[in-house]
């Protein structure tokens, strides 16, 4: 038994030292959604530690008190059927914990599935993020530009990601801004995020998608709004236009570096949006859809 505790102690020291240096990505939020999630995580870790400690305490007590080596030879353990009161407590406490966590969970669900709190009155920046083996394409329909494998976003503005995939199911994830969501071939899902601190963040596909999956990551740069506008202007001046031919070339399986284009692929290869997408499509964003992808409705409708 001692050996076990000694090893556990060593282990926990190592991990504390290891993790003490810098905060874990998920627990180091830079936006409201990630913060909500980090708070939920910390809260549940707290409650759960309490449960684990309670179980360990009862177990240790039982093992020390009732081990055979401490009892007389002729001790005969009694026959004990269940006791309704004890069992009611064993049911009651977990039920209370589960109810409490359920309330937190449901509340958080509605929060992370909507425009971030405090940003409701702002017009969100809509970005279409689509994956192909093994790249990410980010289309900014409003700005009429497109990037590959990197994302530029303004801080302090709600972001609405429209996710879909040219291939296997992928999952769009920027841990420090908020949790992930799937990108799929036959529907568009919506992820609401916002960044509050300028900086560079890691973003990646979290869902296994084949050979190039490990490297299927992208870089996220959050900058103040003014700087973001400057960047857009700059792209418009310097980048080459995205043609259908070029886009098809980009879709070829493989890895690409970062690149930037004017225009978006939504014009000739629209998102599969009309397919019963996410139920919470916000009203203000529906206008965007109609402008950005008008022709899509004709030929893709029949696929559904």
């Amino acid at each position: 038994m001692k050996l076990k505790w000694a090893l556990l102690a060593v282990f926990f020291t190592i991990t504390t030292v290891l993790t003490g240096c810098e905060p874990l990505l998920v627990l180091d939020p830079k936006g409201p959604q990630a913060e909500r999630q980090a708070n939920d995580i910390m809260l549940s870790i707290g409650i759960m530690s309490f449960i684990v400690i309670a179980v360990l305490a009862i177990l240790t007590y039982m093992l020390i008190k009732y081990r055979a080596s401490k009892q007389s030879e002729d001790y005969e353990p009694p026959h004990i059927e269940g006791n309704p009161i004890v069992e009611a407590i064993c049911v009651g406490i977990p039920v209370i914990i589960v109810i409490f966590l359920s309330i937190v969970s449901v509340k958080s669900n509605y929060i992370v599935e909507a425009t971030p709190q405090g940003y409701e009155d702002q017009e969100p920046l809509v970005i279409y993020a689509s994956s192909s083996n093994w790249k990410w394409h980010f289309s900014y329909p409003e700005e009429d530009i497109e990037t590959v494998n990197y994302l530029y976003i303004p801080t302090d503005r709600p972001l609405e990601f429209k996710l879909y995939s040219y291939g296997p199911i992928t999952s769009f994830w920027i841990p420090q801004l908020g949790g992930q969501k799937y990108a799929m071939a036959d529907m568009v899902t919506t992820l609401h995020l916002a960044a509050e601190v300028p900086g560079e963040y890691m973003g990646r596909n979290a869902n296994f998608s084949g050979e190039g999956f490990a490297e299927n990551a992208f870089n996220v740069k959050a900058v103040p709004p003014a700087e973001f506008d400057e960047w857009v202007e700059e792209v418009k001046e310097t980048a080459s236009p995205l043609t259908e031919e070029k886009f098809n070339e980009l879709l070829e399986p493989g890895h690409l570096g970062q690149s930037t284009y004017t225009g978006t692929h939504l014009e000739f290869s629209p998102a599969p949006e009309h397919n019963h997408g996410s139920s919470e499509q916000d009203e203000h964003s529906t206008d965007e859809h109609h402008e950005s992808g008008h022709s899509e409705h004709d030929d893709e409708h029949s696929q559904h």
Binding site: V26, D40, V55, S105, S108, P175, G179, Q180, K181, F208
Partner: peptide, 24 residues
Amino acid sequence: PLFTVGGVTGVMLAMSAADYQYHN
């Protein structure tokens, strides 16, 4: 005790909003 740890992390994963961060 070990299964209890596994069980309670299961409850953590069950909190769907937080699961967006644990998933995958």
